[in-house]
């Protein structure tokens, strides 16, 4: 299977099943879609009016050589392999600790509804947090590196417990030959020098929530009484990013129908001095005024194109940034098994509520149909866990023939469930945007390879 497209002046050909990426001239670009269904003579006949015969023959030979070498028209022979891979025993690798089901902001698009996840306000106790870390250690098998994300709500509303749990983790990792990688997400309201110093010592990554331009951020991320949060958080985030040497963090925003020109927000964050940036599409019920619509896609595609071209320009000028959704590794990256088997939610990754209940991931918290167990008794819903384990690319009809499947792994189970009532469908708007981002990310690689 081959996916070919034009972007920013480049003719790009992705050989989907091998991962090979080719930048081609117009002749090769026109030969490739004919190659499998036409003979060489037929191709010469069809393209002879447009290109010199010798050039077509040269192009044909190059396409033929790449096909023989397994870099064009590679077949998908992975389905049986992935099915057997997914039958293997899995261990728990990562927990998302909902350290606080409470928040000091009232972001309008928050899936947690002011941090409360459709339930009551609550803070995780030290005892529950310790039981969660014990559960992770006990269910991680021989795996040494374990990930724990402090999430909310707003985790800094329960910072004392965060500190105690990190100390407990450091103590336990020595006893059990484990290595905890702690991460933290914050809206910045309670961020101060003490938190920064602690995070710089203990947190492998921090995610700092901000949407971009002041008017964009403050429209969607107000305090409960309505005031905006931008002026309070920006100087603190700038100081925090600098204190981390401009690495191991993301400023992370959400764009909505109110800022379809979101590339301006990405560049605004870059111009504030941030170098690690993610601005991501909102996922919302269609009836919400700020929800993205099918009709918005052409404008959003144009924004991604515009952003990609600008990031190439800035990279060449020596002031590049890292945009999370354009990160792609064409040389390395994970193996086929990982690429096709999904994110790990429900099996390798679990979310823990303040009272110790387990859910497949943070997006499912509060939906009792997805309650999987708790940290003291472990996983009870084995059948549900099996559904998540089998939720790979080949379980999703829309993904089986998609060119992007090796880069998106079938998308987000929670988004699929929220839009279609099934974890084996896909969220269609998100899917379209993901495909566009992959095209842009590959184009950036092509543009920078020109140098």
């Amino acid at each position: 299977m081959v996916h070919q497209y034009k972007n920013n002046g480049f003719n790009i050909v992705l050989d989907v099943n091998s991962g090979a990426v080719h930048v081609v001239d117009d002749i090769a670009y026109d030969i490739i879609p004919l190659f499998e269904s036409c003979s060489k003579e037929e191709i010469l006949g069809r393209l002879g009016q447009t290109y010199p015969q010798g050039e077509i023959e040269e192009g044909y030979s190059e396409v033929e050589a790449l096909a023989k070498d397994g870099q064009l028209f590679t077949e998908d022979g992975y389905e049986a392999y992935i099915s057997s891979f997914q039958e293997r025993p899995t261990v728990v690798k990562a927990l998302c600790l909902h350290i606080a089901h409470d928040c000091n902001l009232a972001c309008r698009y928050c899936f947690a509804e002011e941090g409360e996840y459709h339930g009551r306000r609550a803070l995780m106790s030290v005892e529950t947090g310790k039981a969660a870390l014990d559960f992770l250690i006990a269910n991680s098998g021989n795996r040494r590196n374990l990930e724990v994300d402090f999430f909310g709500g707003e985790p800094l509303m329960n910072f004392g417990v965060v500190k105690e749990l990190v100390a407990y983790g450091r103590e336990q990792e020595k006893l059990h030959n484990k290595n905890f990688r702690f991460t933290l997400t914050t809206n910045g309201v309670l961020l101060d020098d003490e938190v920064m110093e602690f995070a710089n010592r203990e947190m492998a990554n921090v995610v700092l929530s901000i949407d971009g331009r002041k008017e964009v951020n403050d429209k969607m991320r107000p305090f409960r009484k309505g005031a905006g949060s931008y002026d309070l958080i920006v100087p603190k985030f700038q100081k925090f990013a600098e204190s981390r040497g401009q690495e191991n963090y993301y400023v992370r925003g959400t764009y909505t129908r109110y800022n379809l020109d979101f590339s301006e927000d990405v560049l605004h964050l870059a111009d504030l001095g941030f170098t690690q940036i993610s601005v991501e599409p909102v996922v919302a019920k269609p009836e919400e005024e700020y929800a993205l619509r099918e009709e918005d896609l052409p404008q959003l595609f144009a924004e991604y194109d515009k952003l990609a071209a600008e990031l190439v320009k800035r990279e060449k000028e020596g002031r590049g940034i890292n945009f999370f959704h354009f990160m792609i590794d064409l040389e390395g990256g994970p193996c086929v098994a990982k690429r096709l088997s999904g994110c790990g939610s429900g099996t390798e990754y679990l979310a823990v509520t303040p009272w110790g209940d387990l859910y497949p991931c943070h997006q499912f918290v509060g939906d009792e149909a997805f309650l999987m167990g708790n940290v003291t008794e472990g996983i009870q819903a084995k059948g549900l866990q099996g559904e998540f384990k089998r939720c790979n690319v080949y379980a999703k009809e829309k993904c089986r023939e998609c060119f992007a499947r090796f880069y998106c792994s079938g998308g987000c189970a929670a988004n699929s469930y929220n839009f279609h009532g099934s974890i084996t469908d896909v969220y269609d708007i998100g899917c379209q945007l993901q495909k566009k981002r992959i095209e842009c990310a590959i184009m950036i690689k092509a543009a920078l390879a020109e140098e």
Partner: peptide, 27 residues
């Protein structure tokens, strides 16, 4: 090659024998 420039030498099929959490996969 004159008409085609290949950006990478990766072959995913080679990771089947050698290979085998992320909310990125593209890790």
């Amino acid at each position: 090659m004159k008409h085609i420039k290949t950006l990478n030498t990766k072959k995913l099929q080679n990771t089947v024998k050698k290979g085998g959490t992320s909310c990125t996969v593209g890790q």
